[in-house]
Simulated assay, not measured.
Amino acid sequence: MRLPFLPIILLASVLSACDNSSKLADETVSSLGISYQMREFKRQGGSKCPETTTVKAEDTLCASVKFSYPEISSVTQPELASKMNALIKQQLLDQIEGAPSELAETQSLESFADSFIQDYTQDSNNFTSWELERSVRIIHNTNTLLTLLFEEFGFTGGAHPFNGSRFIVLNLADAQPVSLEDLMNPGYEAALNVAGEKAFREARQLTDHSSLEEDGFNFANNAFVLNDNYGVNKDGLSFIFNSYEIAPYVMGPTEFTIPYEDIRSLIRPNGLLGSKAQ
């Protein structure tokens, strides 16, 4: 049975600081004095939202937004902390795929959530709930680099939810994004793709010489090529192919790590990752 649209909006929001206040790795704290505290923002609105009404779970008609992210602070490097916080906020307001949104530079978490909820409540054809969760996590750092992982999950109707993940590597000297070209020797691409395909096949449990196309993956000319969605961690360079990027949704995303031992000769010895070079 189709339920009538009720123009009653119940709106609730929460901004809190979790108890897990943390410092980055000791080497970063000693050299830069950076620490962070995890923050969480929640907002929901709709005609039948949990926590604001006595509605049963199966009768919920609500749009909910949740952000979780690290808030960076530094007594000795306040400008650096401010730049990092601005970048984290922009990542929360940008979608995983596609070009960066111009609104992300001026929009707040609150106005973004309000807009999402407004879209939901103004759509009279919605007979299910919407949700959007975005998070930013610090997954690795040295005294020169910081790797962030941005993750997104949501549902706005349709056959299935949407989700995705994106790495961002920052130079801790200026909070600017670091590309693979910044870390690797010139002409690294072919050798890195070879090492990447090995790690990819291991992660997907594929044989060494099977056809990627026959295994269900869509690479141009059936030749493996890495994307630029990479992160630096303690064991190597991690990469993520999101759902739909190289395979149907049902096959899910693929995450894998290329060990440093396989690519030491490709790393710039005097670069930000120089300690991992031969």
Rank of each mutant, 00 (worst) to 15 (best):
E97Y: 02
R134Y: 00
L180W: 08
I72A: 03
Q176V: 10
E181Y: 09
P70S: 02
G33L: 10
L15W: 05
Q122V: 03
D119E: 12
S115T: 13
L15Q: 05
T207D: 15
L6D: 10
E105C: 01
K66F: 07
E27R: 10
G252E: 09
G271M: 11
I138N: 01
L61Q: 12
A63R: 07
V65S: 08
T144M: 11
V232F: 04
D262N: 13
G196S: 12
M184G: 09
N270Y: 00
T53H: 05
E102Q: 07
D228C: 01
N221T: 11
P4M: 07
S82M: 14
N193L: 12
Q44W: 01
N270A: 15
T254N: 08
E133I: 04
V136L: 03
S210K: 04
L109M: 15
L273Q: 13
I96A: 00
S238M: 10
G231R: 07
V194N: 10
S64A: 15
G157T: 05
T147I: 04
E58F: 04
F239V: 10
S108R: 11
L6A: 05
G231F: 00
D123N: 15
L206G: 09
S129C: 06
D19R: 14
E71M: 14
L24A: 04
F153M: 09
D26G: 14
L172R: 03
L172P: 06
F241G: 02
E102K: 09
D94Q: 06
K23N: 11
Q118T: 15
S179T: 15
N222F: 10
T121L: 03
D26R: 14
I34F: 07
Y244P: 01
R264C: 05
V232C: 06
T128K: 03
G274W: 03
K42E: 02
D119C: 01
I72M: 15
L80P: 10
A99K: 11
N125I: 06
T147G: 06
Q77L: 01
Y249R: 11
V169Y: 05
N20A: 11
S275F: 14
M38T: 09
E152A: 04
